[in-house]
C-alpha cells in the first residue's frame, strides 16, 4: 500500500513522517519519532497508557491512524517540562507519590493536563470520573488524585506542599 507523508507539530516542533495508511499513531511516535513516553498497555484502547493530546483532545494513540493527524498539534509527555522546569503535574506526581512502576505515568499526566485545562478546580469525584480512561496497576489511584489536586492548586497560584513530609515519623 502506498505510503504517504504526514506532517504535524509534535511538542512544538514540526515533523514529517512517511507512513502506510494503517500505521497507528502510537507506533509512529514510538518507533519513528523517538517519542517513547506514551506506552502500549492493552492494544484495545482500554488502558490509556498511550494517551497523547491531539488538537486539544486526550486520545488513545493506539486507536488513531497516523494519517489522521496531518496538520495536527500534538503534545506528549516529552513536551511538558520547559527549559528544565517541571510542569506542576510532573512535580505533583513526584511529591504526592502518584507513580510506582511509571508505565502508566506519561498517559496519566497527559490526560490530567487536558482535564485541568477544562476544569482548573476539580473535586476528587471529578478527577476519579474524568481520569477513568487510564489504568494504573500500582498506586490504587489515591495518590494520583492527590497529585492532580497538588498540580491544580499550583496552577491556580496557590501554595502547595507534599502530604508526605520527609521526617514525619
Amino acid at each position: 500500500m502506498a505510503k504517504t507523508v504526514v506532517s504535524f507539530t509534535l511538542n512544538g516542533s514540526p515533523v514529517d513522517v512517511l507512513v502506510e495508511p494503517r500505521e497507528l499513531l502510537i507506533h509512529t511516535l514510538r518507533e519513528k519519532l523517538a517519542t517513547t513516553g506514551p506506552h502500549i498497555g492493552c492494544d484495545t484502547s482500554h488502558c490509556g497508557a498511550c494517551t497523547v493530546d491531539l488538537d486539544g483532545l486526550s486520545v488513545k494513540a493506539c486507536t488513531v491512524l497516523t494519517v489522521q493527524c496531518d496538520g495536527a498539534e500534538m503534545l506528549t509527555i516529552e513536551g511538558f517540562a520547559k527549559a528544565g522546569a517541571l510542569h506542576p503535574l510532573q512535580e505533583g506526581f513526584s511529591q504526592e507519590h502518584g507513580l510506582q512502576c511509571g508505565f502508566c505515568t506519561p498517559g496519566m499526566i497527559t490526560r490530567a493536563y487536558r482535564l485541568l485545562q477544562e476544569n482548573p478546580s476539580p473535586t476528587e469525584a471529578d478527577i476519579r470520573f474524568w481520569m477513568a480512561g487510564n489504568l494504573c496497576r500500582c498506586t490504587g489511584y489515591q495518590n494520583i488524585v492527590k497529585s492532580i489536586q497538588y498540580a491544580a492548586a499550583k496552577m491556580r497560584g496557590e501554595t502547595v506542599a507534599t502530604s508526605h513530609p520527609v521526617l514525619a515519623e
Binding site: 484502547s45 482500554h46 490509556g48 494517551t51 483532545l57 486526550s58 486520545v59 488513545k60 486507536t63 488513531v64 490526560r111 482535564l115 470520573f129 474524568w130 481520569m131 477513568a132 480512561g133 487510564n134
Partner: peptide
C-alpha cells in the same frame, strides 16, 4: 454520554 466508554474514547 457520560456513561459511554471512558473520557478519551468520548473525545473521539
Amino acid at each position: 454520554a457520560r456513561q459511554i466508554a471512558d473520557p478519551q474514547v468520548r473525545y473521539k
